[in-house]
Write a protein that binds this DNA or RNA. Sequence first.
DNA 1: TAAACATACGGAGGGTGCCTCCGGTTTGCA
DNA 2: TGCAAACCGGAGGCACCCTCCGTATGTTTA
Lengths: 183, 183
Amino acid sequence: MSAMRADARRNYDRLLAEAEAAFRERGTGAPLEEIARSAGVGIGTLYRHFPTRDALLEALLHDRFSTLCEREAELAGADSPRAALIDWLRDFARSSSRYRGLPDSVMATLANEESALHASCHAMREAGARLLARAQEAGEVRADLRPDELLLLAASVSWAAEHQEGDSAERLLTLLIEGIDPR
Amino acid sequence: MSAMRADARRNYDRLLAEAEAAFRERGTGAPLEEIARSAGVGIGTLYRHFPTRDALLEALLHDRFSTLCEREAELAGADSPRAALIDWLRDFARSSSRYRGLPDSVMATLANEESALHASCHAMREAGARLLARAQEAGEVRADLRPDELLLLAASVSWAAEHQEGDSAERLLTLLIEGIDPR
DNA sequence: TAAACATACGGAGGGTGCCTCCGGTTTGCA
DNA sequence: TGCAAACCGGAGGCACCCTCCGTATGTTTA
């Protein structure tokens, strides 16, 4: 990392920037060849820096996932463990819908240990699990809810939001939390 | 339909059978060329009978969707409108997870009026909307829930179930209905 | 039943995207 | 300034998509 040739560094950065733009516009399935072209770089160069699509995603999402872990620490001392959990879930859902198709990648990644994204995903998952446990101990969330179920449901809210006009993630998350019973 | 050449009819049926098998094994993205080959037919023949992947899905799912509409009629006179709705949602979720990737197709289809699946999807959606309205009138389901939200959430349960070991759709649907608050 | 007509068949071919491999170029250090 | 290590680029093989049209087969008619 420290010893990286100047041209390599430049290309790496350009690739990241163009990938961000492409994923935003066309989802996580955006053609890699196009990303390379926009970055003014050959496809071989892209693949050397990022051997898989996931590696590219990893580089783009790593910070965001770490932030989610730190956020857990901040929320640890909150008044209501339930509110803390919900706040965190909101953030998680937002991160998961940063690009179209991302929820699929995130879920595939949590399952697949080989994946480049796995490590950071896993850490984030642990953070979520701790928040859930705390809320459960306080009796503010149903006791039989498992962490992987919760994350899965939160991811599925992101998935759902992709299929709806406007920014409906908030609303869908509320429904998930409250259920469909009368208010 | 009535006047269909014998060879055409035979090929049509074989294609449908092989498509069912392929979608079951490899999801809705299964290679069409493989389906044609297994059916002992050229790729051109597949495309003549089914101009798009959706057309193939439509043919496979049409019956199932109709059944869902009929089911609404059966459930119309149930004791509890809420239980009726939930039963129906269960069926909907089961249909939506018949093949891997199907929830995506179903949601894309509900949005896209050009799609071959759109008509039958739409009818089904109306059926769901009626069940919801009835449950809401009885005060058994929150009044601010919109039909499209409900279907979207049910589809997202199917999506989520694909990303989990075993048959978790039932459980996830329960969570969706009850919310995460303590029991 | 054989010709004539309507229908259906099949696969070659052109397009997109993935990923690998390796001859040629650039960089930074001695 | 020279040279090895690091890096670049794109050609090429693969998979899949979809269209087009010459050929074959089923069906009807005389």
